[in-house]
């Protein structure tokens, strides 16, 4: 029973970790918390559902989905964020992401209706606990590959340079705008993974990612908001904590689990604002 819960917590945590990592990536490239991150993932998940529903095998639909998400993220940066970034008042980019949140959510409801849809699991034949662990493993694999690219390629080096200091990067001849768009694309692709991993257990519907975004906030805050490994660790911790609280604390139960991330966020802000791995508290806006 306990190990079953632990496995499910890790499975859910992998999903939260992916979205948290997406938030952290977008934040590091532009200094903006992207409230529409979850909805971009939602859009990608619906695309995946549509593809699978029309007969494409799961493992073929997945790369297409990730590509769609990547493009959507890049477009968001180029079309929306870019324009407001230079404006005099930049919590406006965040307000713009909130506008995008509302818009994408409504569009999803318009196109795919508000009905609950069953989403295929990547491992349909495995028992629940094992499937959750396998999902976590899959997420780990993808995130590991991403880390390798960022750590050991020229492109990754340029991305880290931009994240560290955009102005110096600019003075070094790096086209910062393009790199930031690339960063948002990568963020959105990672975020899509979160939607695809969580949809089998949450069921696909327009409101699906709203709760997940809260968990991802908690995960990112716990990790320190500017640390990618922190976001991943934070996601797993949040997933396990939430699942165990829901099972073993009678007052919390299934329907109040969503309060767990709120309590976690407040606790982290009070006790250790820089999170587990962060360098400094979020500074902007």
């Amino acid at each position: 029973m306990f190990f079953q819960q632990l496995a499910e917590g890790l499975g859910a945590g992998a999903g939260y970790a992916a979205l948290a990592l997406a938030l952290v990536l977008a934040y590091r490239f532009t200094g903006i918390v992207n409230f529409a991150q979850g909805e971009l993932a939602l859009l990608a998940t619906y695309v995946a559902w549509q593809l699978v529903d029309s007969g494409l095998p799961y493992w073929a639909a997945l790369p297409v989905t990730v590509a769609v998400a990547f493009t959507a993220g890049m477009l968001t940066e180029r079309v929306l964020i870019r324009r407001v970034e230079s404006a005099p008042g930049p919590i406006s980019p965040v307000v713009a992401t909130i506008g995008l949140y509302v818009l994408v959510n409504a569009l999803a409801a318009l196109v795919w209706s508000s009905a609950l849809r069953a989403f295929p699991s990547p491992f349909p034949d495995a028992p629940a606990g094992l499937a959750a662990l396998a999902a976590a493993g899959l997420a780990g694999l993808v995130l590991g590959a991403l880390a390798l690219v960022v750590r050991h390629t020229g492109l990754g080096l340029v991305m880290r340079a931009v994240a560290a200091d955009p102005r110096t990067a600019r003075l070094s001849g790096i086209r910062v705008g393009q790199v930031a768009a690339l960063g948002w694309g990568a963020a959105s692709a990672v975020g899509a993974l979160s939607g695809v991993l969580l949809a089998p257990s949450l069921f696909l519907e327009p409101a699906m990612m709203t709760g997940v975004l809260v968990y991802a906030f908690a995960a990112a805050v716990l990790g320190g908001f500017d640390s990618a490994p922190g976001a991943v660790a934070g996601g797993l911790i949040v997933g396990v904590t939430e699942t165990l609280c829901g099972t073993y604390l009678a007052f919390v139960g299934a329907d109040l689990k969503i309060a767990v991330p709120l309590v976690l966020i407040v606790a982290v802000l009070l006790l250790r604002p820089r999170g587990l791995f962060g360098t400094a508290p979020v500074e902007r806006a």
């Binding site: 918390v33 965040v94 975004l213 991330p261 709120l262 966020i265 979020v282 902007r284 806006a285």
Partner: peptide, 17 residues
């Protein structure tokens, strides 16, 4: 106590809860 978007995130969570 901290600068930043923590307020937006905390209040977002409050609204969902």
């Amino acid at each position: 106590r901290l600068r930043g978007l923590y307020l937006a995130m905390v209040t977002f969570a409050v609204a969902v809860v």
